[in-house]
Design a protein around this nucleic acid. Structure first.
Length: 506
RNA sequence: GGUCCGUUCGUCUAGGGGUUAGGACACGUCCCUUUCACGGAUGAAACACGGGUUCGAUUCCCGUACGGACUACCA
């Protein structure tokens, strides 16, 4: 058996199902596919796998496209992007699967089955671990037991049927997984999977293999949950006679819950109060609303960096990588084998670092919409200073306008605990005096202000600790805030006075 | 239950037959700073267990335990 896959430009695909918001694990799968394609000079394809009409959710497709756009993964081909192998939405390819399903029956690798779901349920109830396979199919209603004539007439009569893969027992199926090495399955253990459903739509297994073949996919990079059915997929490639161009498989480790057992699920977001989706999602009910990384205030670069390292590392001690670096360094061989726990603290840390490293102008452009959404109308000049003042102490983009609301509107409340300790009649008098002094002192910058205030403190025989904390509270209301004098500089003389006076008459 | 996959600090991981087992997040202490944060320094913290193979195993092999996925006319 030859395999030319390594000689040609790779073609990979990300093939999500539009059943709701795209899970963050899906974003990681897309990212790995994208990185691999970009590094190899290959093609990254977006295929929508909507073969389950019952689970289709309107808006999910748009969500997927927008999520990929947000994190910077642009497909070269696919739904919404065009390309030579379309359509890329499986529901638009129904006839293709139909044709291939019947072809597989002709080739003797599949058969018609007439058992209804209800009948199979009965089997499952009477038999502990019932599976439709080489052992049981002889006792069931299918073209193997009924014969061609009877089957044909049943079909002609319009009886419902499915097409099942005919798995021949007694052989070993070896899968060469780029991450896990050789994985062997015994065909005797495999069930006769449904390939074509009664509604005429294919199952994942059929659609996936037909499309991957037709779209000339060279590498399948997908979640580990697909590893068990890969043996069936290999059988399909062989059944169609496509084994020579069968793609290479790489099964990614799963992303696990932050705490507890099992893989990360959409419910974990609400459960732990963290986002597990790239973008927020509005469902039919409150329970189906999900927070997104974007709305939480994450930078896509940080999310990409975080996700890239959840199950992969190029080696060495570096942990901050730009998309370009990731593209350059990515390798399937360095993908880990075990599940990676979703560590939200780490995600936040990446975000913080990316915000710190970002230049003010870029930050201004990102914060402006957030400020405007809050009704704050400010100049770029002011926003730039505000952002510079705050960026070392925020974790999220939203912190600029939430934690730092006081930069855009009057102080909402003053820290009473600190005031209890530091405010008294005597200090109130001095503070009023300081305010009046500053009223006539039109300072230009924090240094000038600081000199003036310190001089005043000394003149009054006080200590910095007597006045500085109170100034901070007057300016921003809390003891947790940016440097006092720099804050005043951002406000400017007029606003600084306004705040001092508001504080005095509070 | 069956099939398959996995197991290095709490977490993400580097490493790999002989290392003081490295980094990052989180945590502790100190410095900077009369706030918070950033930054700097520093500390605690890991090769699941049992057998082999070997002069030597965290690294290779087997088993056990534990974890995970799959087991639908869902993907």
């Amino acid at each position: 058996m030859t395999n030319d896959n390594l000689m040609i430009k790779p073609r990979v695909r990300f093939a999500p199902s539009p059943t709701g918001a795209l899970h963050i694990g899906g974003v990681r799968t897309a990212l790995y596919n994208y990185l691999f394609a970009r590094q190899q000079g290959g093609t990254f394809i977006l295929r929508i796998e909507d073969t389950d009409q019952g689970r289709y959710v309107p808006g999910a497709e748009e969500y997927i496209i927008e999520a990929l756009r947000w994190v910077g993964l642009r497909p070269d081909e696919g739904v919404g992007f065009g390309g030579p192998d379309g359509p890329y939405r499986q529901s638009d390819r129904k006839e293709i699967y139909l044709k291939y399903a019947h072809e597989l029956v002709q080739r003797g690798h599949a058969y018609y089955a007439f058992d209804t779901p209800e009948e199979l349920d009965v089997c499952r109830q009477s038999q502990e671990h019932f599976t439709y396979n080489h052992l049981t199919r002889n006792g069931l209603l299918n073209s193997l037991t009924l014969g061609d004539a009877e089957s044909s007439s049943r079909i002609a009569e319009g009886k419902h049927f499915v097409i099942r893969l005919k798995v021949e027992p007694g052989r070993s199926i070896r899968i060469k997984d780029l991450i896990r090495g050789d994985v062997v399955f015994e065909s005797s253990e495999l069930d006769d999977k449904v390939l074509l459903k009664t509604d005429g739509m294919p199952t994942y297994h059929l659609a996936n293999i037909v499309d991957d073949h037709l779209m000339r996919i060279t590498h399948v990079i997908r979640g580990e949950e697909w590893l068990p059915s890969t043996a069936h997929h290999v059988l399909l490639y062989e059944g169609f006679g496509w084994q020579d161009t069968m793609p290479l498989f790489s099964h990614l480790p799963l992303i696990m819950k932050p705490v507890g057992n099992g893989k990360l699920s959409k419910r974990d977001g609400a459960k732990f109060g963290i986002p597990v989706f790239p973008l927020s999602w509005k469902g039919e009910t409150v329970e189906e609303n999900f927070d997104g990384f974007r709305e939480t205030g994450f930078l896509p670069e940080a999310v990409v960096n975080f996700l890239a390292l959840l199950g992969w590392h190029p080696g060495g001690d570096q942990d901050l990588f730009s998309m370009d670096e990731l593209i350059q360094l990515f390798s399937i061989e360095h993908i880990g084998k075990s599940g990676a726990r979703f560590d939200y603290e780490k995600a936040k840390s990446f975000n913080q670092k990316y915000i710190h490293a970002m230049d003010n102008a870029t930050l201004v452009a990102l914060v402006r919409p957030l400020a405007e959404a809050k009704g704050y109308q400010v100049s770029d000049a002011f926003l730039s200073k505000a952002v510079a003042l705050m960026k070392e102490r925020v974790t999220f983009l939203t912190d600029f306008v939430e934690m730092g609301y006081y930069l855009f509107e009057p102080v909402r409340e003053y820290d009473e605990v600190t005031l209890q300790k530091r405010w008294n009649g005597e200090i109130a008098t001095v503070f009023a005096e300081l305010t009046e002094k500053l009223a006539t002192f039109d300072f230009f910058n924090s240094v000038e202000l600081e000199e003036a205030v310190k001089a005043f403190i000394q003149e009054k025989g006080l200590k910095p600790g007597d006045i500085l904390p109170l100034l901070r509270i007057a300016f921003v209301g809390t003891m947790k805030g940016p440097a006092v004098f720099e804050t005043a500089e951002v406000f400017g003389h007029e606003e600084t006075l306004l705040r001092l006076r508001a504080f005095l008459i509070r």
